[in-house]
């Protein structure tokens, strides 16, 4: 074990201010995502909205590879689901998207802190990470 007195970490005890801000935003985003996920699932199973894929067709479709499933079901790819939110099963994607995108606002919140401190290495890492997540979320890789 390395004792505190034996090393100079250059950092105080306890999480940094930007880490606490990151945690606070992540908490909000996670709660929002879960709430939307559960609420939209309740809407879906209660049949409040019509489903793009009828319940009884599911066992025939979920054994197929994703590409074939999309062709058979007419489900959207990429961000096309945003135009089909009147479908119960498509509405479920809203909660999934909030959860999958929860880290992005947290990372954006780090930018001012690192910029103010002139911590160029971590500013660059944060921008690169934002870029990677935006690229993944963009649907560039969305053609099945």
């Amino acid at each position: 074990m390395v004792g505190v007195s034996e090393m100079n970490t250059g950092r105080g005890s306890g999480p940094s201010a930007e880490q606490l801000r990151y945690a606070r935003i992540l908490d909000y985003a996670m709660r929002a995502g879960l709430a939307v996920l559960v609420a939209s699932f309740a809407v879906y199973v209660a049949g409040v909205l019509p489903a793009q894929v009828p319940f009884e067709a599911l066992p025939r479709l979920w054994v197929l590879p994703a590409g074939e499933y999309l062709r058979e079901s007419g489900m959207p790819t990429g961000w096309a689901w945003l135009a089909m939110l009147d479908r119960g099963d498509v509405l479920l994607f809203s909660g999934v998207a909030i959860l999958a995108g929860a880290s992005l606002p947290c990372l954006f919140a780090l930018v001012p802190a690192y910029a103010a401190r002139k911590d160029w290495a971590y500013l660059g890492i944060t921008f690169a990470l934002i870029g990677v997540l935006l690229l993944a979320a963009s649907g560039v890789f969305g053609s099945p």
Binding site: W62, Y69, P76, D89, F93, V96, A97, G139
Partner: peptide
Amino acid sequence: SIVDSAAAWVYINKGALLAVIAVPSVI
């Protein structure tokens, strides 16, 4: 929390996520 979201976006965008399985699993 970040790595899995990066990979999950690829699966979501390629239609490899069936919410009727995913939501009960998560809950």
